[in-house]
Amino acid sequence: MATSVKVNLDLLLVQRKMSLTELSEAVGITLANLSILKRGKAKAMRFSTLVAICEALECEPGDILQLGQED
């Protein structure tokens, strides 16, 4: 098992009662790219993206990203 960074977008969206489409419109990132991020398929994340999502969800980077074990 390898350690990897997990994106907690699902949980934050549920807590904020926000859909992925709404987040997409708020941060100006395509739905396809947000979907890649949500499914954990992304290889890297830009600071600008992280800041935009944090602003839209009113949270800290640590709330979005978390270290976890990969199967």
């Binding site: 990132i29 790219n33 947000l34 890649i36 398929k41 992304a42 290889k43 890297a44 994340m45 830009r46």
Partner: peptide, 8 residues
């Protein structure tokens, strides 16, 4: 290219 594509 793959890394670039998957950098959000």
């Amino acid at each position: 290219n793959e890394s670039h594509r998957l950098t959000i």
